[in-house]
Design a protein around this nucleic acid. Sequence first.
DNA 1: CGTGAACGCGCC
DNA 2: AGGGCGCGTTCACG
Length: 572
Amino acid sequence: MPIVVERRGATVALVDVDDSGAPRDDRASTLTTEAELPRLIAEREAEHPRWVWTDTARWYPPLLAAGVRVERCHDLRLVDRLLAGIQGRAPRTDWGAPAAARQRHGDTLFDLDSDLHSDLTSDPASHADSGAPRSDSGQDAPLAPPAATYRAQLAAIAAHATARDLTLLSAAESAGALAAAEMTHVGLPWSESDHDALLTAVLGPRPPVGGRPSRLDELAAEVTQRLGVGPVALDSPTDLIRALRRAGLEVATTQQRELQRLAHPAIAPLLQYKSLARLWTANGWAWLDEWVHDGRFRPVFLPAGASSGRWASDGGGALQLPRQVRPAVRADEGWMLVVADAAQLEPRILAALSGDEAMARAGAGVDLYTGMVERGVVDTREHAKLGMLGAMYGGTTGESARVLPRLARSFPAAIAFVEAAARTGERGGSVTTHLGRTSPPPSAQWLDRQSLAAAEGASEAMRRAARTDARSWGRFTRNFVVQGTAAEWALAWLAGVRRRLWAAQDGPLERQPHLAFFLHDELVVHTPAHRVPDVESALREAAAEAGRIVFGATPVTFPVTVAAVERYSDAK
DNA sequence: CGTGAACGCGCC
DNA sequence: AGGGCGCGTTCACG
């Protein structure tokens, strides 16, 4: 049975509700304080309730800090955002935009309950069918906003044609939020000394405050000398472009890709400089000081931080950990990292979404792209990969575009599916993932430009610009259906792994196998070495289950590669 | 002086 | 003329 956690001024109420979200009158709600909450929740966790709260990121970390875990929850904020998309309204509680993520920290985090309250009480309709739960005092309590919101959300889901899918997605989203908070709590094991050693090996010893690594200075001097056109600030794109042109090299940008094509003795040290400068500024000693403490990197994960439902992160660039520094991700003594990766997840998702049986057959083995080569669809694995990525991203040039017709002939359903999603976006329409997350509408500016271009007397330039906009939004919706459904599969996988590890739990989270990292289609579990076989089974079983959960019966398989390693970098 | 856009680049 | 992110730097601007 669900229990709603609701802040009321200085106290916290636990409100028992039934499976429709209505208050149960056989139980009074319990009033407590924030300080007492962990103990009360720990006691009642034995009933296996679903904890209903405004925001997992607000309620769960203090519980974890007190050594209390919960198995299931319903995150009102995340579900509200899902429903808002479906209903075409603004979210009631939208802090989800990545740009606003920073504001989630500090006291503002604790305002959501009051925000919900004022929002609902300012809306007369929300009062219409709500019964007030009784409080300990026996007095009529004011309407419990989170409880009322829960009820309204369940009703909205039940009224929807795809109620089962939305229920599933809500549960997966909420389970993901629990896992996200748990991963921040335990952190990713990080060897500060290994990180320091690898930095020193390529950059030279750590420079004093305000100084630059010696290796960067050496490379900069070499680039300047080889260009032979006077001093150049390598960190300034405009200055660098000017210098390259003076040296007779025609470049429009200073991107790696473009520089790589040039034949000039200065290019090699320049590329080396850019790579090392990046390592130093993004993941150097300053990063280590700021983000790694007591042998743990603790990023904050933001479930559904991207509109597609993918997670984002806040702090330390957690989802962009360069391969260069992954050797520093190291299991504790006597422990291992079990790293699992869903093989070619997105094209497999597309095969399942579109019901493309030929593509499902090509993916019957461990490697979908190799399967395409074996069936004579394309001549190399690289072409298969390029072609599929192009189809899913909307690529129109290069090798990707050349391979596309062959893919369209062999996998007509899959290609037609993404093309249809693109056309819908180009018209300004919304698309949905398999479980029902909707793509956001185009901006007002986008719509304006479209209607201006369609109006009588629009200039050719305006029509062209509108066409460019339309194509661009089509690429977004094309990718949204695949990326978003892949995120749903990954959530189901994550939740399944968490549930299996939970079932075998014995003692505090830190002392047993636990999820430590999640990267879109990849999971890392930190585990005592003797539990590696259990963890590997959990990762494989949950992957097999995720396909059935999201798609029901489908011929598409979702193989995962699993590796038990001491260092993250040894996984691939 | 701070702010924000643009760039570049890391990951998927 | 390739989707989604976060973040550090430069540079223009108020």
